[in-house]
């Protein structure tokens, strides 16, 4: 029961972090919330006895992804003051609007990202649409929740013969970490593909950036 409670509290925090990341006006706040969110998830993975995933999540989510975001933000829209180009391209009157006061909290927020929001009813209508879409998705998924097995139940198909095989066979092979055994030995082809995804990513990123520089 302790585990359940712990999980519930942790998940509450994680969802809260996600909400903050979603609603924050400044990109820095969003990224900070996102980092916290990833760390929180890593802890959830630990509680769910998935240390390998936790380690990866902490390193990837909270570490690498956030770092990549930071360097790209720094390279593009920046963190604090509005960009010079922006002031050239947009009339200064746009900086003065009723919502300004509510944003003061996000000192580090990029002004540029919120110039146009909240100015007109059209935006609010757009937001209403977003809420509807998101609610539909969440609602649809919630409908399936009762059909899912109780969290922590051990009599689900997932604990069937296949998993049994993995556990016994990796013992015979002398690999203690079953996750590693599956990753490399049993589902090595997936991992091969995954390595390819990683390579694709770097090739893709370089190709994209090179093309930009060739202009």
């Amino acid at each position: 029961m302790i585990t359940e409670l712990l999980v519930a509290i942790l998940l509450g925090l994680v969802v809260a972090a996600a909400v903050v990341a979603a609603l924050a006006r400044g990109i820095l706040t969003t990224l900070a919330a996102f980092g916290a969110y990833s760390l929180g998830l890593a802890v959830v993975w630990l509680v769910f006895r998935a240390p390998d995933v936790a380690l990866t999540e902490a390193a990837v989510g909270a570490g690498v992804t956030t770092a990549l975001f930071l360097v790209v933000v720094a390279r593009t829209i920046g963190f604090g003051v509005p960009q010079q180009q922006r002031q050239n391209s947009t009339p200064s009157s746009e900086f003065v609007d009723g919502d300004e006061a509510t944003r003061v909290g996000d000192a580090g927020a990029s002004e540029g990202t919120r110039l146009r929001t909240a100015v007109t009813g059209a935006v609010r209508q757009g937001r209403r649409r977003s809420v509807v879409v998101a609610s539909l998705v969440t609602g649809g998924l919630l409908l399936t929740v009762p059909a899912l097995p109780v969290v922590g139940a051990a009599d689900t198909p997932g604990f069937g013969p296949v998993t049994e095989y993995y556990l016994t066979d990796s013992a015979t092979r002398g690999i203690d970490n079953v996750v590693t055994a599956i990753l490399v030995v049993y589902r090595g082809f997936d991992t091969f593909g995954e390595i390819a995804v990683v390579v694709t990513a770097v090739v893709a990123a370089v190709a994209v950036l090179n093309q930009g520089e060739e202009r």
């Binding site: 769910f48 998935a50 997932g158 998993t163 599956i182 990753l183 997936d190």
Partner: peptide, 11 residues
Amino acid sequence: VNPLPHVLILT
């Protein structure tokens, strides 16, 4: 716990 989903999610 079931290791397979962990593997999938690592990927």
